[in-house]
Design a protein around this nucleic acid. Sequence first.
DNA 1: TTGTAGGCGTTATCAA
DNA 2: TTGATAACGCCTACAA
Lengths: 342, 342
Amino acid sequence: MGKTVTRTPVRRVTIKDIAREAGVSPTTVSRALNDKPDISDGTKARIHALAQEMGYVPSAIARSLVTQRTRTIGLAVRTISDLWVAEIVPAIESVAREADYEVFLSCHYAAAELEKRVVETFRNRQVDGIIVISSIAGDEYRLLQAKWNVPIVLIAPLLDTTHHYTVCADDVEGAQLATDHLIALGHRRIGYIGVPSWVACGQRRLDGYRHALLAQDIPYDPCLVVLGDAHEQGGLEGMQLLMALLQPPTAVFCFNDLTAIGALRGARLMNVRIPENVSLVGFDDVPLAQHIDPPLTTIRQDMDEIGRRACQMVLDLMAGHETVAPLVMETRLVVRKSSDRI
Amino acid sequence: MGKTVTRTPVRRVTIKDIAREAGVSPTTVSRALNDKPDISDGTKARIHALAQEMGYVPSAIARSLVTQRTRTIGLAVRTISDLWVAEIVPAIESVAREADYEVFLSCHYAAAELEKRVVETFRNRQVDGIIVISSIAGDEYRLLQAKWNVPIVLIAPLLDTTHHYTVCADDVEGAQLATDHLIALGHRRIGYIGVPSWVACGQRRLDGYRHALLAQDIPYDPCLVVLGDAHEQGGLEGMQLLMALLQPPTAVFCFNDLTAIGALRGARLMNVRIPENVSLVGFDDVPLAQHIDPPLTTIRQDMDEIGRRACQMVLDLMAGHETVAPLVMETRLVVRKSSDRI
DNA sequence: TTGTAGGCGTTATCAA
DNA sequence: TTGATAACGCCTACAA
């Protein structure tokens, strides 16, 4: 406790050291190590060997200072303990890595102030591009992007935004697919367990749900819409609320799979059987959806694709290419066992 | 497509700019901005205001180059789509942030080569410390740490290692708790769905399981031990295998919660009821464990604590303090509905 | 209390 | 094909 260890700071090998050893100038070493064209094969090989031998490690820091590029992407996510996010992050990371970029990860927990700080830090570190998942900020990013001249891409921002570079699933279509599916199974009283109304994608899913009802002349009953928290707890409570109604729904569409998992449990607690008594549909198709019991009928978002496209978008923007944006990704109905005819 | 956008590179405001504007030297500005003691309150305030007004953003890059510290921690994880990992990462991230450090995240997917590359990159970027979760590398880190003079902390390395700075759960004790619990419920034929034998913590959990049996004079039957993949699929198949035995077990202990979730499904597919026919115990206590049906009896690892302690350990080491290591964290039995008397 | 000078490790621009 | 020189933006002596 408190005992201090003496650390002998091993001075790092620099290109100067190599230059001295090889009897050439630092410039030449730099050229050799960066595989520049104008250098003789002989010295190049010699320098490479020497660098290897001396244990040379290039300093990304120094390089960044002079090139003004860090080969770094800042990634701010709401939280990582969300299966949906957890599927997107590796996709981003792998595309970044292929392009030889590193990813700075920070969580903002849907707190505006924290998100601001995180992005500020990215700026200090001079990341070359920024991706924000489930941003709680409004339109600020449009300004920031212009002011800093750094590409910023938003994935599924929580608030509606005029920011141009966004990627998200087609929530309206997805919700419609889900609701249509339930209607096709013969259901007429269909509930929706959503999220607080300020969450844009929740609102869009509600819209899709309503459109689908309208298209089939099924009246919209506000009693059948309850609000959750996008996690299991909200689903559990939402389901209990719905099942306690005088005329409970025979089918329930959930904002996401986690909500559905909670709803499943809520149903069991109330002795409601899924899908025999009530059909259930989720949204996202996280890997877990197929492993729960009953396997969950859900709307598939391709998280991998979303992550890849978003990362590619920043890379393109960094390269000065214009890209197609905003990007609204297709969704797909995946029918499993949690939904059945009435 | 391919259309190129002209980007006007807004030159960043530097301390020189502020110095010129304020009519002082860059050094003074630096002092003011860093709240150094030897500066008059007047100029300090003036410079702060000016910096604000001019939109000054300090360059972490330049600062790092001169100070030789990046205030950055490299975090290599196996994958982020694992609930256990997903719980640890935010803990690390938040401790780091409190100490004013940023986290570089990379996934190594339990591939030795990739892990090596990731750590190499950390070196280029001169991270001040490194944390590796589920490292696939063996003892290399001891050497690296000495060679680079960078603190490296391993969380639950996959292979046994002589590396000193490690943090992991007490696997043996945890497995014993689980098995004891099942024995106490009257079970005698207890299965174990594990992971490949080269995974050290899997081996330790197997050891704990065997110790517990031994202590109660229950013979160890190798038929009751099957190997999974630490994910749902492995649990599903493992359970099917176990239930197909001539003398199937009446209780099953799983390597982790995901395995247990798969096992749950495997049981249902074979019309085996949990816990009526077979009791089930997991390991980790991921948040999901309490939300599935039946809620899962499991061994709790405090992922938050593990992450915090690991991060604190690198911070301590970076500060030159010696710390207690290796750290073996306590586990705890959490009884829910998936286990019951025989 | 303030300023000057030097350097952190690279790369870029010239000139040789 | 090579080398000298000057940045990049900041901090840390040391001097004033």
